[in-house]
Every structure is written in structure tokens, then in C-alpha cells.
């Protein structure tokens, strides 16, 4: 199976990649190709030109900075993130999402920057990024800027990363008093998330001081679950709190927010979201079950 024809350019630097994107109307970036190439085969996307950044040096570093954050280079593969002790220690939800994504060769091939810029609503990292309140560092023809997770996901395969911008890193704020995790219900056909829930909680062991919960897979666009967060914040760390919070999973979402397909109806996905939110909370809190 061949894709449509396209012109191919290899960038030797981030600056050259930005220039090439500006010079060629409709050009797309490619690195691991795991988001774009399958959609080019099906004809869902047909860019006239690709700018290859897969061989750029220095964009795959995973580092912890003193300022209370970690930085994950855009070209870090999902396998590298899943195996990173820094990510596991400071951003467990992202490590979980990376290790649940696809399968071993897919995790070796796909990169985090492309994954997040692509905005596939069935993919795992978006829920982790939203729950961790991470951000993307991007560079374009107008210079550098930061895109917060809350502003990133605009719709299915639509993100706030502009056509002439390249993601250089993912930044995740760290908090030693917080716990996080990601729980996935795998679509048995595609391997993507039928429902994926990312959670981040800060507790003093008795009370939940702050909560961030996000969904991927179940909804047409990855989103925060504010109903769950409101129920959790200020509540005791208990089974009752988890049950009450999970019951709010669908309440802050529009009725047409849920995906309906051959695997699961929208109503069923909403039902599963409640169950998986509950399980995701039990995964990270030291109570019951």
C-alpha cells in the first residue's frame, strides 16, 4: 500500500525545519511517522511535502531541572519514556501512558512530540499530559512559545500547534507531594484507548488537596473531568470519596462528547468512564480494594 506522492525534505536543525515548513505550503513534520503515515495510507491526510526531523540530534533528552519540572525532548520515543526513571518518579501518569501505548515496536517507533501535536483522540499520552498539567515548548517562524495542555487539544486531530511550528519539548511540573497514574481500557481491535483516564492528586494522606483528572479515547477530544475534580478536592481520602467522584465522570461533558463506534456506543463509553475513573483513583490512592 502506497501513500500519495509527496516531496521529502530532511531538516538538519530545528531552525531549518521551521524554514522548510514555511517554504512549502501544507508541509507536515515527520519523525517516527506513527501518527501521520497510517493516515496517509488511508487518505485521511495527504500532505504535498514532508519535513523529516527524525534524525535531529539532541531532541530526545529526558531531564530533570531544579526549577520543579522535568523536560522530555520531543523526539523521545514512547519506549524511552516508559523506561525513564525520571519520568516514572516525577510523572508516573506519563510513564504509564507510554508503557500502555501500542506494542513494543510501536513504542520504539513513535515519538512524544509528534503524538501530542498530532492530537489523535484515541491515544494515551493526551490524558496524562492533561492530568499532569504539562505543556509543549514549540518553535515557529515567530519564535518560541509555550502551549499549556489545557489549550492544546482543539478537536479530533486538531491541536494548537500551528502549521509552521515544531514541538521541541514536553515540560511537566513536578510536585513531591503528588501522585499520578494512567489507566487504559484497550480497544481490542485497534490497540488504542477505548477509555483512558489520567489522574493527578496531591494529598496530605488524609485529605485530597488538589485533583486533576482527564480522559482520552472515550471522548472525541481529550478533556479534563472537572466534575470529578470538584468532588475530590477537599474531600477525605476514602472509598466513599472515590465512589462519589467517579459518579461525576460524565457530568461536566457535553452529551455529544462521547465517541460511538463499532466497539462501544457513546452510552456504554460513558458507563465505562465511570468505572475506569474509579479504578484509576484506586490505583493511586492507598485505600480499600
Amino acid at each position: 500500500m502506497y501513500t500519495n506522492d509527496f516531496d521529502y525534505y530532511r531538516a538538519d536543525s530545528v531552525g531549518e525545519a521551521v524554514e522548510l515548513l514555511g517554504d512549502h505550503d501544507g508541509a507536515e513534520l515527520v519523525a517516527g511517522a506513527h501518527g501521520l503515515l497510517p493516515r496517509m495510507k488511508t487518505g485521511d491526510e495527504s500532505p504535498p511535502a514532508l519535513v523529516d526531523i527524525g534524525q535531529l540530534n539532541g531532541l530526545d533528552a529526558i531531564e530533570s531541572s531544579d526549577g520543579g519540572s522535568i523536560s522530555v525532548g520531543a523526539l523521545a520515543t514512547h519506549a524511552e519514556i516508559a523506561d525513564s526513571e525520571i519520568v516514572r518518579e516525577h510523572a508516573a501518569a506519563l510513564a504509564d501512558a507510554a508503557s500502555e501505548l501500542g506494542d513494543p515496536p510501536v513504542r520504539n517507533g513513535g515519538t512524544i512530540g509528534g503524538n501530542l501535536a498530532h492530537g489523535d483522540p484515541r491515544s494515551d499520552p493526551p490524558a496524562a499530559l492533561l492530568a499532569l498539567e504539562g505543556s509543549l515548548e514549540v518553535r515557529g517562524s515567530d519564535g518560541e512559545r509555550t502551549i499549556d495542555a489545557a489549550e492544546l487539544f482543539e478537536g479530533p486531530f486538531e491541536t494548537a500547534v500551528a502549521d509552521d511550528e515544531i514541538v521541541t519539548a514536553v515540560r511537566i511540573p513536578t510536585d513531591d507531594d503528588a501522585v499520578s497514574g494512567y489507566r487504559k481500557r484497550r480497544d481490542p481491535l485497534s490497540g488504542y484507548a477505548m477509555v483512558g483516564v489520567g489522574v493527578w492528586l496531591r494529598t496530605d494522606d488524609e485529605t485530597i488537596e488538589a485533583a486533576r483528572v482527564a480522559v482520552t479515547g472515550a471522548t472525541t477530544t481529550p478533556a479534563r473531568l472537572s466534575g470529578v475534580e470538584d468532588e475530590l478536592e477537599g474531600s477525605a481520602v476514602s472509598e466513599e470519596t472515590i465512589t462519589a467522584a467517579a459518579a461525576e465522570a460524565g457530568t461536566a461533558l457535553d452529551a455529544d462528547a462521547f465517541v460511538s463506534d463499532v466497539q462501544a456506543s457513546a452510552e456504554y463509553r460513558e458507563h465505562l468512564l465511570t468505572i475506569d475513573t474509579e479504578r484509576a483513583l484506586y490505583d493511586v490512592l492507598d485505600v480499600g480494594q
Binding site: P38, P105, V106
Partner: peptide
Amino acid sequence: ETGRCGACTVRVDGETIKSCTRF
């Protein structure tokens, strides 16, 4: 040809990838 089945798995620079999902 969709990156699912793995029949095309090869090693590139020491790591397995699906060679139908790379130009």
C-alpha cells in the same frame, strides 16, 4: 499494512520497528 500485525518487524539501529510504518 496498518502497523498492527507485526509481520514486517525488523531491527533498525538495534530496536524493533514495523517496517510498513516507516518511509
